[in-house]
């Protein structure tokens, strides 16, 4: 971040621009000077927008004064500080507004065996009877068998994140199409069923053991924290060490966010397509190859399009098919 000018200075300048604008219509030269200042540093726009907002906020005073109060002669304010303050507070006597709280409850499972699924675009979080937490990604189906003697989850389709608590002698087993994962300790991991007989396992915390269903692996492979195992039918097992940031990014769908770190717009659009029927269409190849960074609400592809268009200088067009992103040229 550029640091040539202190934040307090930026606020000073922003406030003086707002005061100048408030004085009279600005000359074209002033407008140009302000535009140049705003273009100099992104923080200038932030400070200026905030200054405008704070100034505008106090426009409400005029409306509020009309709220059952007599008009007050201006010179009353000018006298002694305390007197004016008391006077002003007197006008402002009144009650407080109550705020409502919004509670979002989760579902908890009681039955030992159960099928759980999410619809397209839905991400569901649930607490299992043993205290483990399970998050189901969009369009996911699992079968759970939790009893005193075993903890088993079969991933039928989609992806899950499991934050398993340590079981007394009962490891947590996750069975996917061509891989089985045994979790003997407290651990946090994600398992995704990919197209074409492939399974990705990411361990975020703790450890797990991976077994290939086809039994090509003689001994279980140990997966530690920040490891990705890609199991693809007919191919050797791939193990990749990930950074903690990358792990976090891969799990960001759990809190309804999608996060990108240098992914192309085409890849991002495909990710959004997993959560929303609202289509994000990339109009040309040049745009499709542009790279994005950031975290976005999975259910708001339109908001993503707007933000990206702003930062990459793209054009946004809406039609019945969805939102189109394309180059300006």
């Amino acid at each position: 971040m550029m640091r040539q000018c202190s934040r307090k200075n930026i606020d000073d300048i922003a406030a003086s621009w707002v005061a100048r604008q408030d004085r009279a219509a600005m000359l074209p030269a002033d407008d140009a000077e302000l535009a140049a200042w705003l273009a100099l540093d992104r923080r200038h726009l932030g400070a200026y927008a905030r200054a405008c907002a704070v100034f505008g906020r106090f426009d409400r005073l005029r409306a509020l004064q009309g709220d059952g109060s007599r008009p007050v002669h201006p010179y009353r304010y000018g006298a002694a500080g305390m007197a004016s303050r008391r006077r002003f507070l007197y006008l402002a006597a009144g009650g407080a507004a109550a705020a409502a709280a919004c509670l979002v409850g989760g579902i908890s499972l009681r039955t030992p065996s159960r099928r759980l699924s999410t619809r397209f675009g839905e991400v569901a979080r649930t607490v299992l009877p043993d205290g483990s937490t399970l998050v189901l990604d969009s369009a996911t189906e699992v079968v759970l068998q939790i009893s005193r003697s075993r903890r088993r989850l079969a991933l039928v389709r989609g992806a899950i994140r499991l934050d398993a608590v340590q079981g007394d002698r009962r490891p947590f087993e996750v069975a996917a199409s061509i891989a089985r994962i045994v979790v003997p300790v407290a651990a946090s991991l994600a398992v995704r069923e990919r197209a074409g007989d492939a399974v990705d396992v990411v361990v975020r915390r703790g450890g797990a053991e991976l077994l290939e269903e086809a039994a090509r692996l003689a001994t279980p492979v140990r997966l530690g924290a920040n490891m990705l195992a890609s199991v693809v039918a007919g191919q050797p097992l791939q193990l990749v060490a990930l950074s903690a940031v990358e792990v976090r990014r891969r799990l960001s769908w759990c809190d309804g966010m999608l996060s990108f770190d240098g992914d192309t717009l085409a890849e991002a659009a495909a990710e959004f397509a997993r959560y929303s029927r609202f289509r994000l269409v990339i109009d040309d190849r040049k745009t499709a190859a542009m790279r994005v960074v950031g975290r976005y609400a999975a259910d708001d592809p339109a908001g993503f399009a707007r933000t990206v268009a702003l930062s990459l200088g793209l054009r946004v067009r809406r039609d019945d098919g969805g939102v189109h992103l394309g180059s300006n040229g």
């Binding site: 906020r57 106090f58 409400r60 005073l61 409306a63 509020l64 004064q65 709220d67 000018g78 500080g81 004016s84 303050r85 002003f88 507070l89 006008l91 402002a92 006597a93 009144g94 009650g95 407080a96 507004a97």
Partner: peptide, 19 residues
């Protein structure tokens, strides 16, 4: 919406400004 609480808050802030 217009509220007396809001007026009170704003007036407190303004009251602190130099005369």
């Amino acid at each position: 919406a217009i509220s007396r609480q809001e007026l009170r808050w704003m007036s407190t802030l303004i009251a602190e400004l130099p005369a």
